[in-house]
Design a protein around this nucleic acid. Structure first.
Lengths: 113, 113
DNA sequence: CAGTATCCAATTTGATACTG
DNA sequence: CAGTATCAAATTGGATACTG
């Protein structure tokens, strides 16, 4: 075990950055390649435009992604992951691994019952 | 970068387990040693008894901690972290490290402005 | 296409009083 | 001591209509 941390402030900050319902999916999609607004909306099935905008703006404010407006008509905006966003994606991946182990644990438990 | 993950299902499961407002502090406290209900209440300053009970019950259902009722009078109950809980604490620690980097990033940014 | 603006529902957390 | 029970506040996400 790591025996540092000493409080959860760091985690709270990370959770603040990634905690939204769709942010991990968005970060994942963007770590593969840049995407436009409508593409992200299609990839995140069920998200509303309002919430998509919100979460993109928050991620941008947190430095996870950057927004490039080409100023064309019709409008064209591309979202790209930043190095900081990439590093968070890695940390998230570590948590995901735990999540999968956890699902295995739940399955075993159900089997035992 | 890791280039696996492929969706956020694993992360969603992890977040489900640790996402409560106080759970990371509780897990951290319990990873140091076992604690009684009132001790956890004191360590988590500001938590209500209702919410403390809720989060402990959820963490128990998720296999992160175990609850030992000594059946004494006055009541005495001890909460202890499980191996699964320890492994989650490690994953959380990785996220916390990112959170601290992130705070450094925010500070630099503020300084630049 | 890439958003805003409103209004509403659901979930989560909190304050407080009470109990075996 | 270790909880339950109730009610209220706050936060978050969603549906829908509209705009440059």
């Amino acid at each position: 075990m790591t025996d540092e941390n000493s409080d959860d402030c760091g985690f709270a900050a990370a959770l603040q950055a990634i905690g939204g319902k769709w942010k991990t999916s968005l970060l994942w999609a963007l770590h593969l390649r840049s995407h436009r607004f409508a593409e992200l909306r299609r990839l995140s099935r069920g998200i509303s435009e309002k919430v998509l905008t919100q979460q993109l703006r928050q991620m941008e404010a947190d430095g996870l992604i950057s927004r490039h407006d080409y100023g064309e008509v019709p409008p064209r905006v591309e979202y790209t992951v930043t190095p900081l966003g990439l590093s968070l994606n890695d940390a998230v991946t570590a948590m995901s691994k735990w999540g999968k182990q956890h699902e295995a644990w739940k399955a075993r438990r159900q089997y035992a019952a």
